[in-house]
């Protein structure tokens, strides 16, 4: 029943993507040059900077060791936020999904908190934890927790009841049902949520840095902004983009390794 559709050529797709990116950067750069020749036309670098300037800014940061330091600081906050938020989210979901009582009582609270715009809580965390690693981590945690919680909770609730009935007859205790059926089944959901959770963790960390920090990519962007340095702002954004892409690549790789039993992951 598999349809025989000719797959798109990967190399053509890659070439098109590269070409488009190059054209975009070139147009940007040329727009700025044009503005330099005629101030009423083109792109004003005061507001938009220009690719060559952005590259130069990043290179300058690199020489000072800022890039590595900022990325490490932001990564530390993000990863800590992911680990703490993810763990709390998964444990909470397993607990609330395994008891109808607990679920009925507590899930509405989580829905309530989830509807809160948590970015607005960040100043509060800074007040509580100061300009430390913890104010950033907690900011990431409150964003990650809910994404992972709801994905895991739905994943566990979504399990085919036949699978549970079967392992129960085969001799499974409640814990064994959890371990052999519910958690593996939720894993697919946890993984897809983890991809967006990474984004959220990074948002939490970076925005918290915005509010006050001594280092980190968010701090670098905020600092550049205060200096009216648009190249710095774009440079920071570029670093963030690369960072998220790398993390996503890693997660995809991990997902393929852990979900070999899924048809679409077959080689």
């Amino acid at each position: 029943m598999r349809e025989r559709v000719k797959p798109v050529n990967r190399w053509i797709v890659r070439a098109a993507q590269l070409g488009l990116s190059a054209a975009f950067v070139a147009a940007w750069e040329l727009g700025v040059r044009w503005h330099a020749a005629d101030a009423t036309k083109g792109i004003d670098p005061f507001f938009f900077s220009e690719p060559s300037q952005i590259a130069a800014t990043i290179a300058g940061w690199w020489e000072h060791g800022y890039v590595v330091r900022d990325v490490l600081v932001t990564m530390e906050e993000t990863v800590l936020g992911l680990i703490v938020g993810g763990t709390i989210g998964i444990v909470l979901a397993v607990l609330l999904a395994s008891s109808r009582w607990l679920g009925a009582i507590f899930v509405p609270f989580l829905v309530l908190f989830n509807s809160l715009p948590r970015v607005t809580l960040i100043p509060l965390f800074i007040l509580w934890f100061g300009f430390t690693l913890w104010s950033k981590t907690v900011s990431a945690v409150v964003l990650v927790l809910f994404v992972v919680f709801f994905a895991t909770y739905d994943g566990i609730k979504d399990v085919d009841p036949t699978l549970i009935a079967n392992v129960r007859v085969l001799g499974a205790s409640r814990w064994a049902v959890m371990r052999h059926v519910l958690i593996p089944s939720a894993l697919t959901w946890i993984f897809s949520s983890l991809r967006s959770a990474v984004g959220f963790a990074l948002i939490g960390a970076v925005v918290a840095e915005y509010f006050g920090a001594q280092a980190g990519v968010g701090y670098r962007i905020q600092y550049s902004e205060s200096q009216l340095n648009t190249s710095g702002v774009f440079g920071g954004l570029f670093i963030l983009m690369v960072l998220v892409s790398l993390i996503n690549l890693f997660l995809e790789w991990l997902q393929r390794r852990l979900l070999v039993w899924k048809p679409q992951n077959a080689s």
Binding site: T162, L163, A165, N166, V167, V169, A172, H180, P184, S185
Partner: peptide, 28 residues
């Protein structure tokens, strides 16, 4: 000491044939 064969597929999709067959022994 009952065994139950279901109409629907009840094998655990994330376990290999070997692990599926071994599961009841492991649980017991």
């Amino acid at each position: 000491s009952v065994g139950f064969l279901f109409q629907r597929d009840a094998l655990l999709p994330w376990k290999t044939v070997r692990d599926n067959v071994m599961l009841p022994l492991q649980l017991r």
